[in-house]
Design a protein around this nucleic acid. Structure first.
Lengths: 226, 226
DNA sequence: ACCTGAACACCGTTCAAGT
DNA sequence: ACCTGAACACCGTTCAAGT
C-alpha cells in the first residue's frame, strides 16, 4: 500500500480489481482503495463521480479483456461458440467482479463490441433483430451466471476456506433424507463441487449454443403457448 | 411503521421483502427493518444470527412460493418447462430479491424440493447424475438471471423513473455510430426495453429447455473439444 | 425470553479549504 | 488541477444491561 505515483483512473481500477479478487467485491470500498494509494478517500472523487462509476469501470476492464476472434468463414454457430469462449476467458479470472457485467455490457466500448459481434452472428443465423437482441442478451448473461455460480467456489478465494465450505456443503447434501431427496443425495458430489472446471464450462457453453440453435421456430411455438 | 405485534421471523422477513420490492435490496438494512417494527436494531438478533441469515430467509421465502406442478405422464421436457414456469412465477414479482436465490437453492426445504424435482425430470430424460446436476443448476440459474436482467426494468420500481431510464438507454444506443455498431443500433428498442414480458420469458424458457434437450451427446462432443 | 442503550469500527459522500 | 480535513448520515455488530 501507499504507492506514491500520481493518481489516475486505470491504476485505481487495478487496485479495485485486486481488492475484489483477493477479498470479494465488498472489499472494494472508497476508503480501502484510497488507503492503498496512501491518499484520502476524497481523492478518488476527482477520478470517479461516485462508487457506481468505479463498478462501471471494473466491468469495463473485464470486457476489455475479451479477445474477440476474427470473423472467418465457418458456420455462425461455431464462431458464436468461440466468441462465448473468449467472453468466459475474460470473466473466469475475476469471479467476484463478473456479476457487475450483467447490466453493463451495453455501456462501454468493449461491451458494445462484444454485443455487436454477437448480434451480427445471430443475424447470420437467421434471427430477426428483436429476437436476436433477447437471445444474445440472455446467452451472454447465462455465461456470466456460469462464472458466478461455478460449483466449488465457496465464497472467498482462499483455497483452504473453499475446500472447507465445499466439504461442508457436500456433507449437508449427502446427509439429507434419501427417501425425500433421492436425486439430490445421489448428486451431492456434483452439486457441491465440480469434477473439472473446463468440462463444466464446455458443457455450459454447449448447452447455451444448442439453445440458441433451436432458434426462432421453437421460441415462437412456446411464445404462443403451444 | 411502528407495528406493535410481537416480533417473529416471518413478519420480519415480510418487512424485508416489502422494503426490497419498494426500494431495492440495498434498502434492506437491519436498522430500517427494525424501525418498521418500532424496535431497536438489536431486537432482530434474537431472530437472525446476522444479516446474511435475513437474506437466506428472503431467498427461502421466494422459493416457498414455487408451486410445483404434480408429476404426470407427459414427456419429461414438457414437465420440466412447467416446473421452470412455476419457478419464474415465484421470482418475477420480486426481481430485487431474485438474485439471492442464485446461491441458495440447496439450503432450504423449498429449494431442495425444486432441485429434487428438476433432477428427477433430467434423470427421466436420460442424463447421468453428474451431468444432471450441472445442467439443472445452470438452467435454474439462467432462469434467475432472466428475471434479474429483464430488459426495461431500469433499477428502481417506480414506473416513472423506469420509463426515463429505458428512454435514455434506447436513445444512447440509437445514437451510436451505425457504421461501427450496425446491429446494436438496429436492435436499440429490443435491447433497451421489452415488447412483451410474457414473450420474453416464454422465449427464454424455450431456449433453456431446448439447450437441455440437446442433452448429453452435444455436451460430450463439446467437452472433448470437437 | 425478549428487548434496550451505548458504543465501536466501519461506510459513501458533502462541503469548504488548501497548494 | 489535484488533494486534504472535518463533518454528516448512515451501516452491521459487540457487549452489558434491563424486565
Amino acid at each position: 500500500m501507499a504507492v506514491k505515483a500520481r493518481l489516475n483512473r486505470e491504476t485505481l481500477v487495478s487496485t479495485a480489481l485486486d481488492l475484489a479478487d483477493a477479498e470479494g467485491l465488498d472489499a472494494v470500498t472508497t476508503r480501502r482503495v484510497a488507503q492503498h494509494h496512501g491518499v484520502t478517500p476524497m481523492a478518488l472523487y476527482r477520478h470517479f463521480r461516485d462508487k457506481e462509476e468505479i463498478f462501471d469501470a471494473l466491468a469495463e476492464r473485464l470486457l476489455a479483456q475479451v479477445a474477440l476472434p476474427e470473423p472467418d468463414h465457418r458456420p455462425w454457430h461455431e464462431q458464436t461458440r468461440d466468441v462465448f469462449d473468449a467472453f468466459l476467458a475474460a470473466l473466469r479470472p475475476h469471479p467476484a467482479v463478473a456479476g457487475l457485467v450483467l447490466n453493463r455490457v451495453l455501456t462501454s466500448e468493449p461491451g458494445l463490441a462484444l454485443a455487436e459481434r454477437t448480434l451480427s452472428l445471430l443475424a447470420e443465423g437467421g434471427f430477426p433483430v428483436d429476437q436476436a437482441a433477447e437471445t444474445g442478451s440472455q446467452a451472454l448473461c447465462s455465461l456470466v451466471t456460469l462464472v458466478i455460480t461455478e460449483p466449488g467456489r465457496g465464497d472467498g478465494p482462499d483455497p483452504e476456506t473453499r475446500d472447507g465450505t465445499v466439504r461442508a456443503k457436500r456433507a449437508a447434501l449427502a446427509a439429507l433424507p434419501p427417501r425425500r431427496y433421492p436425486h439430490v443425495v445421489a448428486a451431492a458430489d456434483a452439486l457441491a463441487s465440480c469434477a473439472s472446471d473446463d468440462v463444466y464450462y464446455a458443457r455450459g457453453t454447449a448447452m447455451i449454443v444448442a439453445g440458441i440453435r433451436s432458434g426462432p421456430a421453437t421460441a415462437d411455438r412456446a411464445a404462443t403457448g403451444g
